[in-house]
């Protein structure tokens, strides 16, 4: 078990190395010159050239990459071309907003998805089931930027129940929840739909299995048959989907932070890409990659807790 975790962390280092290289390389070959951005459109070519030289942009690719990696090993993500801010600090400053959005979105996806999935399975072939199934299809086919925009229009502009955008209040205050709820619903909806479908079909399959018959023959209450005997088994494949949803949610934040004017990593990244702020892009992407790998590890560890048949190592 410990060995497994160490192996995975070791693997993670290589994955992140690979990611850093790919991002560094693609930034290198991307059109657009950071020096021009810094100097401004009208700056004389000599000034631009001087900036290039100062920033080391004229060095060969591998020298640039080597310099960057040398810094990275010491925990130094470099400085923004644009604002000269320390990249690590800039990210840390924006991180809480993104974490809040993703956590809330994931909660919506998991709670809504699992609940709807269970209800649909329990009321198989009833109007509740059909409603839930249609909802899932709808949730999967509506693009979240459109949904977000509509939600702002309806709930913020017309009904004025929630602010138009931005995270300005602490998490667990009334205002905090008020400003989080619509972005979280928008972000989590399509994942909720995927999870609902998965939970429903898994529950239906599990409910037909022999051990459910055994449970009933023992005199177990129906509610316990569903919520204990069936659900625990149905959750095993659902967890995989939950892990995958995390990736979808992270992608979603990039767009939705823009839509809801939330100052998070996604927005930071979009701005950085537009301004050819290489170090900022690097830092942001590395963070996202690392989170993704860690979430995958957590999902694998969750399997062990939920399914005793799985063990790593031993």
């Amino acid at each position: 078990m410990t060995k497994f975790i160490f192996q995975r962390i070791f693997q993670m280092i290589f994955i992140l190395l690979g990611v850093s290289f790919i991002v560094f390389f693609s930034m290198h070959i991307a059109p657009g010159d950071p020096a021009t951005f810094i100097a401004g459109e009208e700056a004389p070519p000599e000034t631009v050239e001087q900036i290039r030289e100062d920033m080391g942009l004229n060095d060969p690719f591998f020298v640039q990459y080597g310099d960057y990696m040398a810094g990275l090993i010491q925990g130094d993500l470099g400085y923004s071309y644009q604002t000269s801010q320390n990249v690590g600090e800039a990210i840390l400053l924006r991180l809480p907003n993104t974490v809040r959005l993703i956590t809330a979105g994931l909660t919506v996806a998991a709670v809504l998805g699992i609940a709807i999935g269970i209800i649909a399975a329990l009321r198989h072939r009833s109007w509740l089931d059909y409603t839930a199934t249609s909802f899932s299809l709808l949730g999967l086919s509506i693009p979240n930027f459109w949904l977000g925009t509509m939600a702002i229009l309806v709930f913020a502009v017309i009904l004025q129940w929630v602010p138009v955008g931005g995270f300005n209040s602490p998490w667990f205050t009334f205002e905090g929840i008020q400003e989080t709820i619509i972005p979280a619903l928008t972000l989590g909806l399509s994942s909720a739909a995927t999870i609902a479908r998965m939970t429903r079909s898994e529950m239906l399959e599990v409910l037909g299995s022999d051990y459910i018959k055994t449970a009933r023959s023992k005199g177990v209450r129906e509610i316990k048959v569903y919520m204990v005997h069936a659900l625990r088994n149905a959750m095993i494949p659902t967890i995989t989907v939950l892990g995958l949803s995390f990736g979808v949610l992270m992608g979603g934040t990039v767009i939705l932070e823009e839509v809801f004017a939330i100052n998070g990593i996604g927005r930071l990244l979009v701005d950085a890409i537009q301004q050819r702020d290489f170090p900022m892009v690097q830092g942001g992407v590395l963070l996202i990659a690392a989170t993704f790998v860690i979430i995958n590890l957590i999902v694998d560890l969750l399997y062990i807790i939920i399914d005793p048949r799985i063990s790593y190592g031993e």
């Binding site: 022999d210 051990y211 018959k213 055994t214 005199g219 625990r232 095993i236 399914d307 005793p308």
Partner: peptide
Amino acid sequence: RNQEISMIFQDPMTALNPVF
């Protein structure tokens, strides 16, 4: 069920809940 009448099934491999 179980108090008065109990039942055992054909396949012991699938009749017990794997996660408990």
